[in-house]
């Protein structure tokens, strides 16, 4: 299998979307494009907003990704865990598909004798270490997120530290929603590391609506632009685009 690129959206939000398209639908569309959507729901320590949490789970489910609810304090470790987990999950999906081709339908890792699983897992581990990774990070900056943004910033820098330790390449893009004039605002274009985050969120004016759907739509557009412009470079990519898990 040739080396390819993993594409992920990482959505950080604290609750319900209330403007634009249904985010679950956009997530499902992203999945069809081979892009996984991961969602981290940031919870208020004092409050228990179970409604927003349900949406968090649903978006990730239809986006073929991973979701996790956390208190702001635990954010750093969670962000990197979710990203890693989603990578493994996607790669595992591809490997499982290959296995099915070799072993026939309805065969998955669990159907192999434990002794044979080891090798499959090593392949997945290898790919996770060496594949290139592209992440569009979407940060909800609506009013209720204001006091959580410093922690979000810290967690993202930390994510960058983790991913940089891999052998494979990394590219990040950072967007916030709602923007000052538009639904979504660009904070950082494609960059290999997130060290330059200091001050990014200070410019923000949190408030107003939470257009999660349009934000996901924008992430999808960013990926498609990138895929089109670099078509020939990624030409020999394996079937990763079609993976869904």
């Amino acid at each position: 299998m040739s080396k390819g690129t993993l594409r992920q959206v990482l959505l950080l939000t604290d609750g319900c979307s209330n403007a634009g398209e249904d985010p679950t639908a956009i997530a499902a569309l992203a999945k069809e494009h081979g892009i996984t959507v991961n969602v981290i729901g940031i919870m208020e320590e004092s409050r228990n907003g179970s409604q927003g949490l349900k949406e968090v789970e649903e978006i990730a489910l239809s986006g073929g990704g991973v979701s996790q609810i956390v208190y702001a304090r635990q954010l750093s470790q969670t962000v990197q865990m979710v990203t890693r987990k989603a990578m493994t999950q996607t790669i595992q999906g591809v490997v499982n598909k290959e296995l099915q081709q070799i072993l026939g339908e309805d065969h998955e890792l669990e159907d192999l004798a434990p002794a044979k699983r080891g090798q499959v897992v090593e392949v997945v581990d290898d790919l996770g270490e060496t594949m290139d990774l592209e992440v569009v990070i979407l940060v909800d900056t609506s009013a209720s997120m204001t006091d959580k943004l410093p922690m979000v910033q810290e967690a993202l820098v930390d994510l960058s530290v983790s991913l940089r330790s891999r052998t494979g390449g990394n590219r990040f893009a950072l967007y916030s929603f709602p923007g000052r004039r538009r639904d979504v605002e660009k904070q950082l274009g494609w960059t290999p590391e997130l060290d330059s985050l200091a001050g990014v969120f200070k410019k923000l004016t949190p408030g107003g609506l939470t257009p999660t759907g349009p934000a996901l739509q924008e992430a999808l557009r960013i990926f498609r632009n990138r895929m089109n412009t670099s078509e020939d470079r990624w030409d020999e990519r394996s079937g990763l685009e079609e993976t869904g898990m």
């Binding site: 493994t88 890792l109 090593e122 997945v124 581990d125």
Partner: peptide
């Protein structure tokens, strides 16, 4: 998760 258990077994 067979994946992570197998990883530890490795």
């Amino acid at each position: 998760d067979a994946m992570s258990i197998t990883s530890e077994v490795n």
